[in-house]
Design a protein around this nucleic acid. Structure first.
Lengths: 202, 202
DNA sequence: AAAAATACATACAAAGATGTTTCCATTTCC
DNA sequence: GGAAATGGAAACATCTTTGTATGTATTTTT
């Protein structure tokens, strides 16, 4: 028999992962408690027990979990500049172009725009992406290059859903960008192939 | 008294525009026939009369209308290469960074992923964006640069919703990109400022 | 001008979703 | 070992949304 803490965290994890999978497959509009529960193999009572107000408690946890997972990869590599971070992310999508975690985030993000209650829950966590993932604080100088590369990064992620999506072409385009802008000074020396591998999913 | 054709097309237009506005404000998840109708000032009976299966008839028309509006701007400028088109679009967002029409399209696009019936309706129209807006056909050679600039374009559009969104910074980043890649050969000669203005909304 | 079709409104039934309560089985605490 | 708390299941009411049927005024047709 498992302890209560173990049981709790186990079913919570199942609910969270079911939610992420459903967001990827069906999108936010078709996300419902019933579907989440049948996917997770628990009852609605269980969901409401752990997340009393349903999605409004569940989705912030989902967002935090996905962002924290990304963040963890960077923390292992030590301090670095925003520009270096974007470069590492671009090389990350180059290595793993069809990682799907960002789909769930985008679905929640688009839905939160029109749902105040949801926005109150997830908004602050999304805001924390800037410092936590991109290393951007209030005192960071504005850098057109870093922002432009963020555009490339997000545009490339979005491109997965496009009619002419093709991994090879996507990678070719990303290579073209990286060749054009060049590496940040000392980049290759600091981030070896080994470090790069850590940016890929576990 | 107006003719029936006039009345029909008037209420259809009101329904379409109400839908676009709601998609922008509330997102796809909170889009409902009731809300569309009260926004458009017509009854649900009217909606169902013109669009018998509700959103599944309405949204394809919405998508087609938004894409056709963009397409019209290009048609006025004569034939051009895909690369030239992307350049014009980038300069378009440079001139009008916070045009919101793409929000509605993105909402529908994200929802269609998980809704077969919706996808059947809007999928082909979205696919037509490649030839109609980007000038890409099956025989068009793969060009990493054009694809990369599409990433920038879409990433920039998405950036509107970001926590650190700032028109000035967005424009600076786009300028940085355009300076870096340079103009296509003969671009300035063919597309004068006057032509550029036609890419902005009417 | 009568008939037919069209544009639109209203009402109702059937699903689906959420909010809430109650109940039972295990742990955990004393 | 008994009391209290916790995890989880099931049931119910309510609300929202959609599908559908019916009614009516206006326009078009003949």
């Amino acid at each position: 028999m498992a302890t209560q803490i173990e049981r709790s965290s186990a079913t919570q994890t199942r609910l969270i992962e079911a939610t992420i999978a459903l967001l990827d497959e069906l999108g936010y509009a078709r996300l419902s408690e019933t579907r989440i529960c049948e996917r997770a193999g628990v009852s609605r009572g269980a969901l409401r027990h752990h997340f009393p107000s349903g999605r409004y408690d569940l989705l912030p946890v989902v967002v935090e979990r996905l962002i924290a997972a990304e963040e963890a990869r960077f923390l292992a590599l030590g301090p670095m500049t925003p520009l270096e971070r974007v470069h590492l992310m671009l090389r990350g999508t180059l290595a793993q172009p069809d990682r799907s975690t960002s789909v769930a985030l985008l679905q929640i993000w688009m839905a939160a725009r029109g749902d105040t209650k949801l926005y109150d829950g997830v908004g602050p966590i999304f805001d924390s992406v800037l410092p936590r993932l991109f290393g951007l604080t209030d005192t960071t100088p504005d850098d057109p290059q870093t922002l432009a590369l963020r555009f490339v990064l997000h545009g490339a992620a979005l491109h997965r859903f496009n009619a002419d999506y093709d991994v090879a072409k996507l990678r070719a385009a990303l290579h073209w960008v990286l060749d054009l802008v060049g590496e940040p000074t000392g980049f290759a020396a600091r981030f070896t192939d080994v470090a790069l591998l850590q940016l890929e999913p576990a």
